[in-house]
Design a protein around this nucleic acid. Structure first.
Lengths: 120, 120
DNA sequence: GGAAGTACATACAAAAATGTAAGTATGGAA
DNA sequence: TTCCATACTTACATTTTTGTATGTACTTCC
């Protein structure tokens, strides 16, 4: 074994670990929904906006930009008027999307039981 | 087949679907970390606070209360002085925790590659 | 006897997230 | 010719989130 390995172990529970920042972006209010919406499709801005009920244009573009910077979303702009831009997931994006989708699906699939178990 | 089935299909992309609310709680800034921290342990309030770097007492108790109401966290209080309270995951909580952990682990495990792929 | 630890609640303040409205350049439909 | 659609950005206002400080009631350690 190499004596100089494992100098740094990523951990989302550590306040200043870069993985925490990425994790926050991915699990952000609109970030999770963008990842889910783009899972199997390439979509245009306004299509995304219609699919993700409740996002404002401002939040959607902000979220897309953040996920693009992190390397999870790919943005392809065509230089035409009116504007035409297509969003899709990168390979990394698909990996995280898959996991976010599994969480969402579990909640959706067990919603009845979860709600039934709540008292208040 | 029953003609009266599937009247309602839960979908986190729908603004007013109850699954969206649950999903938001679970993926909230501190919610994800609480779920991860409690995954294999029963912990006291101050232990959790130390483990989850950066949470304030206020946010931690607020998050725990929310997750308890949703039925993901179990709170056991002993009537002694000084106070003693133990937090753990319910069966539902363990299911969501598992999925949140998988997402976090993927990011932690691929952190180097993800950061290397970023331009800015 | 004073300080620290426990699990919070509460009031107040500051910071961050989000929404709203308007603007841009242009093409096509009514 | 007026309005809608496209993909945004920017300024401004509001809302939500988060942090800070303090208090509580009592026990144990120094």
């Amino acid at each position: 074994m190499d004596t100089l390995e494992k100098v740094f172990e990523p951990d989302v529970l550590s306040a200043n670990c870069p993985s925490r920042t990425l994790f926050n972006h991915v699990t952000s209010r609109w970030g999770v929904l963008v990842l889910i919406a783009l899972q199997n499709d390439t979509m245009r801005f306004s299509e995304l906006r219609r699919k993700i009920e409740g996002v404002s244009e401002r939040m959607l573009s902000q979220t897309l930009k953040l996920l693009e910077e992190d390397g999870f979303v790919d943005r392809k702009a065509f230089d035409v008027v009116p504007p035409h831009v297509e969003y899709s997931l990168t390979a990394f994006g698909q990996e995280v999307s898959k996991r976010v989708r599994e969480l969402a699906s579990w909640i959706e699939g067990n919603l009845g039981d979860i709600l039934a178990a709540k008292q208040p």
